[in-house]
């Protein structure tokens, strides 16, 4: 059994941390793991994609079109962009419905596509929530990534304690409490 999880978002939204949490979780479950990250220029507010693959033995760290079991999307347009990567029939998308305008929209060259979530739902199974709003309620919109992970976690058969342990070991000390709160808001959403 190999699982492919793709995490997409906008540079600065915390996709790196999310992929590290998932990677460490998979290790705690005894799997072979590969996590692919993005650094440098592409992090500056552009589209970012990270991958987490786990299973008995993982070779390539990449996920190609039609291969992702799960896509965690931190932004609506990025969810839409990633749709071709989702496995047809069985793939699930977990989407933060927040919308962030990309530069071609800001400069008026193009429009932000309408009804994205509806369009994705016509094709694939979707779990949607406004994790940015929830994170803001917690006092820090930056923990929207962990809220989304919580929403993802409630659909999996992995004990709550494992998640908490991994979050504690992955996030910086001073943010542990915030992130555990964020995770719980996600799991109860």
């Amino acid at each position: 059994m190999n699982k492919s999880i793709m995490i997409v978002g906008v540079g600065g939204q915390g996709t790196l941390l999310a992929s590290r949490i998932l990677g460490n979780l998979a290790i705690s479950l005894g799997y072979d793991v590969k996590v692919s990250e993005v650094h440098g220029m592409s992090q500056r507010g552009g589209s970012v994609t990270t991958y987490c693959k786990y299973g008995d033995k993982i070779y390539s760290p990449l996920i190609d079109k039609g291969e992702a079991d799960i896509i965690l999307a931190f932004e609506a347009l990025e969810a839409y962009r990633a749709l071709p990567y989702l496995k047809k029939d069985t793939g699930v998308m977990v989407i933060n419905i927040t919308e962030i305008d990309p530069m071609p929209v800001i400069t008026g060259q193009m429009e932000y596509p309408k009804d994205i979530i509806k369009k994705i739902k016509e094709k694939a199974k979707v779990i949607e929530l406004d994790s940015t709003k929830i994170a803001s309620e917690l006092g820090n919109p930056r923990c929207a990534n962990v809220v989304l992970i919580g929403a993802f976690a409630k659909n999996l058969d992995i004990p709550y304690e494992n998640w908490i342990e991994v979050i504690k070991n992955t996030v910086p000390n001073k943010f542990i409490e915030l992130n555990i709160n964020a995770f719980e808001r996600g799991i109860n959403s």
Partner: peptide, 17 residues
């Protein structure tokens, strides 16, 4: 390659800023 979903419209790209 496996068949995959196609988008029915052109969508704006998101270059770094």
């Amino acid at each position: 390659p496996p068949s995959h979903f196609e988008l029915d419209e052109a969508i704006p790209n998101r270059p770094p800023v």
